[in-house]
Structure formats: C-alpha cells, structure tokens
Design a protein around this nucleic acid. Structure first.
Lengths: 164, 164
DNA sequence: TCCATCTGTAACGATAATTGTTACTAATAG
DNA sequence: CTATTAGTAACAATTATCGTTACAGATGGA
C-alpha cells in the first residue's frame, strides 16, 4: 500500500482541531473520525508537534490542540512537517558515469525536482487550515461522493463506525 | 523500493534520443547509460510509445527514436505518459461518514490535490526535452556531484559500467 | 498517595508497489 | 533462414506504509 497518506491525515487532524477550539482532542477520538488506529494518529501528531503546529499533553484528560490559530497554519507547513515525500524519485541506481548524459542527468533532474517542489509549495502556502475548515461546512457532499465514485474502489469492507 | 523513478528514467531516455537524432537506440544501449536492465527500459519505452513520444521498431537493426522534435516534447507530456503517481495520497480507508469532518474531508483534499497537480503541471509544461538536453552540455558536473553528495548514499556497490 | 487515563514509541506483520531478472513470442533486416 | 530486437508475461527481492500490540512515562483527580 505504499502511497503516503500522512499529509491527508494531518490535514484531517488539524481540521478537527480547528473546529474543537481550545478543547484538546484525544487520539482515540481523532482515530474514530479518520477511521484508523490511534497509534497512526499519534505518530502524525508527534510530527506536527515537533513542527510546532500542535501541542499535546499526556496523562488523564490530556490530548492535543492547535498551537496556532487555524488562519496562520498553511498547508505548506503541514506538508513539510509530515515528510510527504518527493513528487518523483531520481534514479534507483546511479547512472553510468562514463556516458555524457548519464554523468549529468542527475543534476538536471535535481534542478527540475526543485522547480516542481516550488510549484507545489506556491499552491500549498496559499491554503490555510481555516480555509479547509470552512470548505468543509457547506455542500462539499457531492464533491466527496464524486471523488469516491471516481476512484471506484471496493474498500470499507464491513468495518463498524462509531457515532461521534 | 517504492518511490516511482519512471519519470526520471523517461527523461533520461528521451534526452539520449534527442542527442542521437534519427539513429534508433537499442534498449541495451539505453540500459547501459541508465545503469539498469533493458526490460526496465522497454517497459518505459512502451508507455512513451503509446503516448506518441517515441517510435520503436522490432527486428534486426531496430530500436527507438523520438517521434517529435525535442523542442516540442514537454516534461508534462512525459509525466503523464509514465503515470508518475499522485503528489500525495488520500485516506487509505474512507473516513468516518458519521463525522461532519470525515464526511467531507475527502472532497476537500481532492480539490487541494487538483490544485497541487496544476501547480506541478505549470512547471513541467515549460520545460522541453531540448532544454534538458542543452542543460546537460556544460558545467552541470558540480551540480550533479553536489546532488549526489547531498543524498549521501552508499549505493553503486561495485557494479561494472561499460564504456559508451 | 494511588490509580485510571492518555501520549510517546518500539516492535512486528500484512500489504502493496517498484525494480530487476529470466524467458518467451513476434517482427524485421540481411 | 537466421540473427537481432522489441514487447510482454511471470516471478523474486526490496522497501515503504499502515495497522496492531505492548509498554514506559506523564498527568489529573479521588
């Protein structure tokens, strides 16, 4: 299942917290909304905490909440916090250094990768958690249903979902 | 080793062909420059052929060459041809539909993913194979060496490289 | 003080994608 | 006809991700 979904889950987590305000959320509660194991949530929370985006407290009646206002958390910060991976990978094995192209192609690809990453970052730095939270409110229902149908997968194989 | 390097190898292949002009290259020759198995090259060539970027010929003295001028092949076409994968993945399991956020977050993330992909495409559509081929020529040596050092990996574990 | 609760984290298995490899068929040039 | 080459199927090795269990450490409240 190698396809890193940490960024998606991190945005989900932060959106939940934006709506919870000052009340700390427990990893169990978040896991219920994300539909995964609490440890998966805590792993991502740990990365968000190291990046200074959330604060967590151990112990009874602990949990995690945003460290900043939703309006001042951009998706770029989230993207960097969770190590979402490169847009594309370079050569698995170093190319042939005895070939003029092989000798220089990695540098060229590296510069291209940098440009692409900048393109990604220009988009992500313009979107805040507040904006995502607000986009959740209204009629996003049809879009979500369409996206689900488009991917047309036979997942959700009979798991039970708790009411929140 | 899940980190898709097909785009990088495809750019490498097309750059080799841009320099070869009308002379068809054999998958063996390309594989020697890329430092991989010829079948890996043929798999990617097959995708590039279906996208109309290269033409191949079976049989003795066959091989592959560009179907278009290097100046009219953009990296966006290459990116699409090889199915380089999404910039980030959505939820592995569908989120909890009984939660207001879980119900709508996938649609929101899907819209974000579309915007990010457009950011990537805006960059890639401005780079041609001709441009990459020219960037190979001069002093790219130091950049390549730096990129290699930056990744600081202990690969190239004693493989033999043929002279081209 | 003690205890239930919650985070942080290590460890491990299942799953899945990628890459490398072998082996074969089909097409083509000479 | 034959050597050569692309196209492709099939399989193993490698690797990242995700889910899960287990446990140590911190914390608030009885």
């Amino acid at each position: 299942m190698p396809a890193n979904s940490r960024f998606a889950i991190a945005v989900h987590i932060l959106t939940l917290m934006a709506r919870a305000g000052d009340e700390p959320l427990k990893s169990d509660e978040v896991a219920c909304s994300v539909n995964t194991n609490p440890v998966v949530i805590r792993r991502i929370l740990c990365a968000l905490s190291k990046a200074g985006l959330v604060v967590s407290q151990t112990g009874a009646s602990g949990g995690s909440r945003l460290a900043l206002k939703p309006s001042s958390i951009t998706l770029l910060e989230v993207y960097r916090a969770v190590d979402a991976g490169e847009v594309f990978a370079l050569h698995p094995q170093p190319p042939n250094a005895k070939c003029p192209v092989g000798m220089n192609i990695e540098g060229a690809l590296d510069r291209i990768l940098n440009e692409v990453e900048q393109g990604v970052e220009r988009v992500l730095e313009k979107i805040t958690i507040e904006k995502v939270s607000k986009s959740i409110e209204p009629r996003a229902l049809r879009s979500a249903a369409k996206a689900r149908a488009a991917r047309s997968e036979n997942r959700n194989s009979g798991k039970k979902e708790r009411e929140l």
